[in-house]
Structures are given as structure tokens and as C-alpha cells.
């Protein structure tokens, strides 16, 4: 078990983006995505500007694009939905090659892809530059309820422990000649999941007893993080500020 680990997506670094306090990063990226979602899909160039801004932040963070790009696959399922939209949406039809497509559907599909991609990229910037425990401290500063913060920190603390347990169970299955193919594998996999639950829950019971023996009375001693200074605040506000400027320009034109 040992010391707390970095979480799975975090890319170690000391850039400006890494050093910005987590609560400012969460607020800034959330504000940025809000601005993006509020932009009408017809303003093509605005989305280009947003992407440029976000890529600028990625460049500042020194996280290699090769690290981020493969992780964008989480958006594939909804790309499929976006591809279907021009076919199933109503409204005026346009002929593109052999297909008759819905014009509002095409616009909606483009908007979905643009906003969804920017959203995923923004979330990845947060995930790759923030360590789990900083994120929990950040959420605490953003007034998340204390109990919720505790549950979150337990989850992050034991993510890799339980992940490793699951990995050992897989090795045990495979070393006994198990191949996970077809429906007949389901009972085996499900009973593995069942024992994973029992082991996780029993670990929780042991952790609770260990906490009680160390004087836990409903609260965790959390070290106070440094208050953010004005320059950090300004740096964090730069991204949503610039995005808002783009949005306003788009409206004025």
C-alpha cells in the first residue's frame, strides 16, 4: 500500500497550470465550458478561438499531446450519436451525395462535436495537471460538504489498492485456464465482482476500526491549503475571461 499515489491520469509536472490551486482550476475550467456551451453553433470561428485558447493552456502545462490524445476516446460513443443526428432529426432536408440530411440536424451534430470535444479537452487539462488530493482539497474550498469530501478522499486513496486487487483476481482466473469469451464467462466474472465487493466492503470496515483506534470522531484532519494570491487568481481567470471576450465579440458582430 504505502504512500499516497498520484492518480491514473495525472501527468507529473511543475508548470504554471500545475501550480495553480485546484479550486481556481476547477472554477476556471467550469466557467470556460459554460461559455463554450452558451455559444450558438453558427459562430464557427468562435469555436476555433476556444480550441486555440485551450491548446495554449495545454502547451503551457507541458503535458505532451501524445499523452492527452489517446484519452480523448471517451467521447467516441457520443460522436456516434452526433453522426446519427443528421439522419434522424426533422426540419429542412439537404442532399449530400446519396443521402438526404436534415439541415438543423447537421448543425446540431457539428455543435455537439465542437462543444463535446472542447468539454472533454477541458476536463483532461484539469485531470492531467491536478493530483487527486489537491482536487479533493480544492472541492473542499469550493464548499463541498465535509462528508462528501471524506468519501471522495477515501475513494481516491483506495482506487489503486482495489484496482490492484482486481488485477490479482484476473491473474488468478487466467492462471487457472479461464478465457473470458462468450456468455458462459459471465457467472465467473460476476462472482469475481461479488468477491471484489465483499473484499472492498470488509476493507472499509477494517479502515473504520483503524480510524476509531486513532481517535476518529467524524472529522478528518485536513491540512489547510495556502490561500490563493492575486496573481494566481488573475492567471486562472485568464482562460474563461478570454473565452467570454470571444463570445461577446461573436454577439456584437
Amino acid at each position: 500500500m504505502g504512500a499516497p499515489h498520484g492518480h491514473l491520469l495525472h501527468y507529473h509536472g511543475h508548470s504554471v497550470v500545475h501550480r495553480t490551486p485546484a479550486h481556481l482550476k476547477i472554477a476556471a475550467l467550469l466557467a470556460f465550458v459554460v461559455v463554450v456551451v452558451a455559444t450558438p453553433g453558427t459562430e464557427l470561428w468562435a469555436f476555433g478561438a476556444y480550441l486555440a485558447l485551450l491548446l495554449g493552456v495545454v502547451a503551457l502545462s507541458h503535458v505532451p499531446p501524445a499523452y492527452i490524445l489517446p484519452r480523448m476516446v471517451v467521447e467516441v460513443p457520443f460522436l456516434v450519436f452526433a453522426l446519427l443526428l443528421p439522419f434522424i432529426a426533422t426540419g429542412e432536408r439537404v442532399d449530400v451525395g446519396p443521402f438526404s440530411l436534415s439541415e438543423p440536424g447537421l448543425l446540431a451534430a457539428w455543435t455537439l462535436v465542437a462543444k463535446g470535444t472542447l468539454g472533454v479537452l477541458a476536463a483532461l487539462v484539469l485531470a492531467t495537471t491536478t493530483e487527486g488530493r489537491d482536487l479533493v482539497a480544492g472541492l473542499q474550498r469550493l464548499r463541498m460538504p465535509a462528508l462528501m469530501v471524506q468519501i471522495l478522499s477515501f475513494m481516491l486513496r483506495y482506487l489503486e489498492v482495489v484496482g490492484a486487487e482486481m488485477h490479482r483476481m484476473r491473474i488468478a482466473r487466467e492462471s487457472r485456464g479461464f478465457h473470458g469469451r462468450g456468455l458462459r464467462a459471465w457467472p465467473v466474472l460476476a462472482s469475481s465482482a461479488g468477491s471484489l465487493f465483499i473484499r472492498s466492503y470488509e476493507r472499509g470496515e477494517r479502515v473504520h476500526l483503524a480510524m476509531l483506534s486513532r481517535g476518529y470522531a467524524g472529522r478528518l484532519p485536513l491540512t489547510q491549503s495556502q490561500p490563493a494570491d492575486a496573481s494566481q487568481l488573475a492567471r486562472a481567470a485568464a482562460l474563461p475571461g478570454a473565452a467570454l471576450l470571444v463570445l461577446l465579440t461573436a454577439y456584437v458582430w
Binding site: L147, Q150, I151, L152, S153, F154, M155, R157, Y158, L159, V161, V162, F197, S200, Y201, R203, G204, E205, V207, H208, M211, L220
Partner: peptide
């Protein structure tokens, strides 16, 4: 906290 946290994991 510990039990909900571990169940979440």
C-alpha cells in the same frame, strides 16, 4: 466515510 468510499471504489 470509509464504507461509502470503498463501495464507490
Amino acid at each position: 466515510a470509509p464504507l461509502a468510499g470503498l463501495t464507490a471504489v
